[in-house]
Nucleic acid binder design. Structure first.
Lengths: 103, 103
DNA sequence: ATAACATATAAGTAAATGCTTATATAAAGG
DNA sequence: CCTTTATATAAGCATTTACTTATATGTTAT
């Protein structure tokens, strides 16, 4: 039941914030530079992502470093997986992806 | 970029509607019985699911049968998969799930 | 034909949401 | 100290959203 998770990911800006800090740990100000919205807006998005378990935060002096916690996507992955039985033709594809990753 | 998809899934009621018709094809009225909301509300949820590619509809006389299209989840699956590189400890788990399915 | 039924669409509304500006909190530097 | 910098929180606002009731559309049955 990934309720809060899906709501967190539903907003495009918030999703973009997540994608950004997934590439590299960043401070709030650094995230802000990538977007055309105010610092509070960024902080609010980060708070929402944190509540959803998608983000971790680390305080260092007056800076707060945020990094993505992709493991927070796991409940969503599991939810989707419940439907994999209905689309067997996709499974080969998925397995292929996994195999590629292993190399 | 599963924008419409994630917005469609973000609402708990709509997600429950999807889950319901994933179990079996149903008419609008049959879906309605499972929820404490009006028929128009159900129709609106179904329309949203359809726009997201999560649902198919088949007209038969005055009935409209809806069934889930779990393949519509694929873009979301693919989006999540982009982050699998960051959580290698989950992969074994996922592979296990897939193997179980094969049996 | 007309009534009953199944669904969709329209219009209105209350609540949620994503932003803003203003302010609080806290750390660092002069 | 006092100012600057980094972030969070508060309050307000406009838009979106998930519902409602009312109505339109289309189909079956009498």
């Amino acid at each position: 039941m990934p309720a809060q998770l899906l709501r967190a990911l539903a907003d495009p800006t918030r999703r973009a914030v997540f994608e950004r800090i997934a590439r590299a740990e960043m401070t709030v100000s650094q995230v802000r530079k990538a977007f055309a919205i105010s610092q509070p807006a960024i902080s609010q998005h980060l708070a929402a992502l944190k509540r959803a378990g998608l983000v971790r935060q680390r305080r260092q002096g007056r800076f707060t470093y945020y990094r993505a916690e992709p493991g927070g996507l796991q409940p969503l992955m599991a939810w989707i997986a419940r439907y994999r039985a209905f689309w067997p033709e996709r499974i080969a594809e998925l397995q292929l992806m996994l195999r590629e990753l292993e190399e």
